[in-house]
Amino acid sequence: MRLFLLSALLHGLIALRLLPALASTAAGALASWLLLSAVLVPMGLMARRFARPPRSDRLATAGLFALGLFSSLFVLTLARDLLSLVAWGTGVATPAWLRTSAEAVPLLALALTALGLLNTRRTARIKQVEVPIAGLPPALEGFTIAQISDLHVGPTIRAGYVERIVERVNGLQADLVAITGDIVDGPVHELGSHVAPLAGLRSRHGSFFVTGNHEYYAGAAPWLAELRRMGIRVLLNEHVVIEHDGGTLVLAGVPDYSAHHFDPAHRSDPAAALAGAPPHAGARILLAHQPRTAAAAEQAGFDLQLSGHTHGGQFFPWIYFVRLQQPFTAGLHRMGRLWVYVSRGTGYWGPPKRVAAPSEITRLRLVASPSWAGSGPTPTQGGVPHR
């Protein structure tokens, strides 16, 4: 009931700010949609309480689309109010201006939502990134990692999309595949068949997975068992040693940064994940769902951390708010001696909407960087040109 009440209040605020300035026909159309959306949004978020699959999936899809449109409506309404203050101060806030600006808000919100929907229907594209590792031995020069993250298989992302992702990843012929969490938004018995194509991932050294926060929402233990059954290696505060053409690479993984709130045994610990690793390893790589694991990873002695979680903000204006919680939003960055790469995600969460934050499959290639000794002050942000 609280969610329904909150939805009604926020939709009512939009109605209060826009409807008085609109002509009767436009006002009626917008009012009808706001009434429908005020109900759809909470019902979509709690679809499994109102129906069973497949009807719950259809309800969730409608509600999540409404949520995406509402988000843009709300933000643009606030922006119009700010512009109106300026317009009143400069004397240009005529009735015609107020009507035109009120008409523009739903039209622009609908255009952004339609564009975001179109972007989510496209299969994630390949993003090429080179990561310079100080002292990388020749045997590991050119070692490639295919990273997928934040698939969020659920009501609007199904087996067909996962199959296309697997096909593109396999086409990279990577040395290993890293899956950095949040692959599901639901339980195994509902989504197992839609995640099953991940068993077809192919690389020289196999596929490796670490949990994201959504695995714990969906039931982490059954999903970890299912992934292991599929042949995907799960890394929970542990590492594997990979021998590659005479070189040694350590690949470690930690549970999600917040996992201990769901299971105390899953507290994220990069130092424990690296314990016992061979000291002569040519590269030490950590899989960690959230970028904010980076401070502990840098202290533990890792060279590179691969993360996701942020979705690059997914769509305006949230692309500017991620930094309030995470040290990095997307791309390649430096924290001390540690490189951190943050994927924008291979799927999306919630509203089927991506604007200015495209989904990606990342192909990371390790290259030697003998000119950097790994000591002394370094920038907290930075990067290498992405191809």
Rank of each mutant, 00 (worst) to 15 (best):
M1R: 07
F4C: 01
A23D: 15
G28S: 08
G28M: 08
A29W: 13
W33F: 14
L34H: 07
L35W: 11
S56L: 06
A60V: 09
A62T: 07
A62Q: 09
A66W: 04
A66R: 06
G68E: 03
V75F: 15
R80E: 04
T94Q: 02
A96T: 00
R99M: 00
A104N: 06
A109D: 05
G116E: 03
L118S: 01
E130W: 12
V131N: 02
A139L: 10
G142E: 12
P155Y: 07
P155G: 03
N170I: 08
A178H: 10
A178G: 12
G181T: 04
G186C: 04
G186S: 08
V188T: 06
V188M: 10
S193A: 15
S193D: 15
V195H: 02
G200T: 01
T211N: 03
G219M: 03
M230R: 11
G231T: 05
L235M: 08
G246N: 09
L251V: 03
H266M: 01
H266S: 01
D269E: 06
G276T: 07
Q290N: 06
L304K: 05
H311S: 09
H311A: 07
G312S: 03
I319L: 12
F321L: 15
M335Q: 12
G336I: 09
L338P: 06
S343V: 04
K353H: 03
A356D: 05
A356Y: 08
P358L: 12
R363W: 08
L364C: 11
R365L: 13
